[in-house]
Design a protein around this nucleic acid. Sequence first.
DNA 1: GTCTATATCTAGATAGAC
DNA 2: GTCTATCTAGATATAGAC
Lengths: 228, 228
Amino acid sequence: MRLVDQSANAEASVRGEQTKRLIVDTAVRLFREHGYEKTTMRAIAQAAGLSVGNAYYYFPSKDHLVQEFYAQVQDAHHAAWTVASDAATEFVDRLRIAMLTGVEVMAAYHGFAGKFVKTAVEPGSPASPFSEDSRPARERSLALFRSVIDGSTIKIDDELRADLPELLWLSYMGVTLYWLHDMSPGQAKTRLLVEKAVPLIDRLVALSRLRLLRPITREALALYRLLR
Amino acid sequence: MRLVDQSANAEASVRGEQTKRLIVDTAVRLFREHGYEKTTMRAIAQAAGLSVGNAYYYFPSKDHLVQEFYAQVQDAHHAAWTVASDAATEFVDRLRIAMLTGVEVMAAYHGFAGKFVKTAVEPGSPASPFSEDSRPARERSLALFRSVIDGSTIKIDDELRADLPELLWLSYMGVTLYWLHDMSPGQAKTRLLVEKAVPLIDRLVALSRLRLLRPITREALALYRLLR
DNA sequence: GTCTATATCTAGATAGAC
DNA sequence: GTCTATCTAGATATAGAC
């Protein structure tokens, strides 16, 4: 009896997962094809062959569907990074590859990504890159930037080393924010930003080991830890 | 005849200005009292004794009313800064005062300022601090940070000097972004950020004159100019 | 627990009459 | 310039089927 019930529940939740997946895939496809705002909940439901109420049964709001979109971009970034970083051992090369592959996987969505950031920057929003809901995606992204360092031959100040992955991730968030507002053809300015800023970061990391700059590095790091 | 017509037009546009002003004042008051999202266009119109359509005759969207809100905060910042900075001559003091007065005039709106930033970060939004519509407010804010430098006794690298006001303004935008997400009581963490980060900026500005750091300063500045 | 259908609410935005 | 009526779309409520 109990066994049967569990089996029924298991099958039911499998069906539920499939429906959930169907909604996400349809939504993301329509976002891609028509943009975020022009894709209505009614259109998503209709294209998926479901009722609007059913979509809201699985996702409390349209914003929550964006979260799933992030996850897909995240996966694409990870895949592209894994392939492209294979042979690179220099920190400066690995960081450039990490950022450029990130920009590349986002490229197709530049037209409407601006609509997403609206909800992402709002304090308390589940779509915020700093939110609890975003933790899984954030952890994966942080792991990527940890691998940028760990796979490289760079020497890093011991104290900086612990926080560097997070700092690189933050700078990648900054690049993303710039990219959103970058209206140059093919977002060429963002690529230029990466090409030029990455060597600067590389030099700063190296400089931070100098006696002259050590105090200010320590202070900046202490402040960062205090306020994050 | 022509004279009479012009007079009539003038009177009409005066009345128009009054209506416009009435809408703005009512909207900003309601934003203050109930927050942004809970203040509907209907409520604004009703409280002002006008129709919704009339409000839209003067302001193409609710976002455009936010712009007016910014302007008022801007004015308050300028007034507070002028009073508080009077006796300060050290760059580090003046920058701290500029940032802290800014945080103070925004304090009352912390609860709902997060709703504003949603529209402000969207590329192409008139409410963006980088937009053409925001130019007047931005110019006034830039003038404030120019006065931070000009009223001080600090020695600055010649090349840095030209862009420093803009860089300080940018860092103030960063402080504002942190403040939005700062849920500590009284936004104490943001105040701490200002107290600690301002001396760091002060030291960085001083360090940038050193021979050792000059090349990297030049490069960073060149990149900034290229991409802004 | 999964899903449909439909009516309804809310609020930003617009159209057209006066 | 100003109004009323209307549209659109996110979101909710309800009632019921499997």
